[in-house]
Amino acid sequence: GLEHMADEEKLPPGWEKRMERSSGRVYYFNHITNASQWERPSG
């Protein structure tokens, strides 16, 4: 619901949600550090 939507907005600075086109899996990418990970970043 709306709570989940708001929660997605609160990623740490630099992080954004991305989708891997080949598999459709969602991952997280940090455009500041060029880091990427499957787990939702905390902090």
Score class of each variant (00 low, 15 high):
V26H: 08
E20H: 15
F29Q: 02
G43E: 12
L11Y: 03
R25E: 05
E3C: 15
E8W: 05
Y28N: 00
E16T: 04
W38T: 06
S42G: 11
V26K: 04
M5R: 06
F29L: 03
R21T: 15
E16Y: 03
N30H: 04
K10G: 12
E9A: 10
S36N: 04
A35E: 13
S42N: 13
E20C: 15
V26A: 07
P13S: 07
M19L: 15
F29G: 01
S23K: 03
I32G: 06
E16I: 06
N30R: 01
G14W: 09
H31L: 14
W38I: 06
H4R: 03
P13Q: 08
M19A: 09
H4Y: 11
Y27K: 01
K10P: 14
G43Y: 14
P12Y: 02
S23Y: 03
S36G: 02
Q37D: 02
P12I: 02
E16S: 05
P41F: 01
G1S: 12
L2K: 10
I32P: 03
P12D: 02
R18N: 03
Y27T: 01
G14P: 09
H4W: 12
E39N: 09
W15H: 00
K10M: 11
K17Y: 04
Y28Q: 00
N34D: 05
L11V: 02
L2F: 14
E20P: 02
E39K: 07
E8N: 10
P41W: 00
P41M: 01
G43W: 14
P13H: 09
Y28L: 00
T33L: 06
G24K: 06
E3V: 13
Q37M: 06
L2I: 13
R18D: 02
K10R: 11
Y27P: 00
Y27I: 02
F29W: 07
L2Y: 13
S42K: 10
W38P: 05
Y27F: 06
M5V: 12
E3F: 03
S23R: 03
N30V: 01
A6Q: 14
F29I: 04
G1T: 11
P12S: 03
K17G: 02
P12L: 03
E3Y: 02
P13N: 08
V26L: 08
Y28H: 01
A35R: 14
L2T: 11
R21L: 15
T33K: 05
H31D: 04
I32T: 08
K17W: 06
R25Y: 05
S42H: 10
L2A: 10
W15G: 00
E8I: 10
R40Y: 08
E9P: 10
T33E: 04
P13G: 06
N30P: 00
P41T: 01
N34H: 11
E3R: 03
A35K: 14
L2P: 12
D7E: 11
M5S: 13
Y28E: 00
F29Y: 14
W38F: 10
S36E: 10
K10I: 11
K17N: 01
